[in-house]
């Protein structure tokens, strides 16, 4: 696979401020094209990992 970021792309608004990517996604992210899609999927993955981690810790 080429050129698809391994890390979550940073999404910024028009003033250059970083936008927090919502885990449920948004129309705005879809409208950004592949970068918005990747950022959203990364976020889901991060949150999923975090939940898994918490779940595993609770089990221990």
């Amino acid at each position: 696979m080429q050129n698809i970021e391994k890390n979550s792309p940073i999404i910024k608004d028009k003033d250059g401020k970083t936008i927090e990517v919502p885990v449920e996604g948004s129309i705005g992210l879809l409208a950004l094209g592949y970068k918005g899609l990747m950022a959203w999927r990364m976020k889901r993955k991060e949150v999923g990992n975090l939940l898994n981690k918490k779940e595993n810790e609770q089990k221990k």
């Binding site: 696979m1 080429q2 050129n3 698809i4 919502p22 449920e24 948004s26 129309i27 592949y34 899609l37």
Partner: peptide, 23 residues
């Protein structure tokens, strides 16, 4: 050679959430 990269950019309808539909 780009097939795999570009295939990964597809959005599945069941991937969408309430946040996409409610607007």
């Amino acid at each position: 050679s780009l097939a795999e990269t570009i295939a990964a950019l597809r959005v599945h309808p069941q991937e969408l959430t309430e946040a996409h539909v409610k607007p």
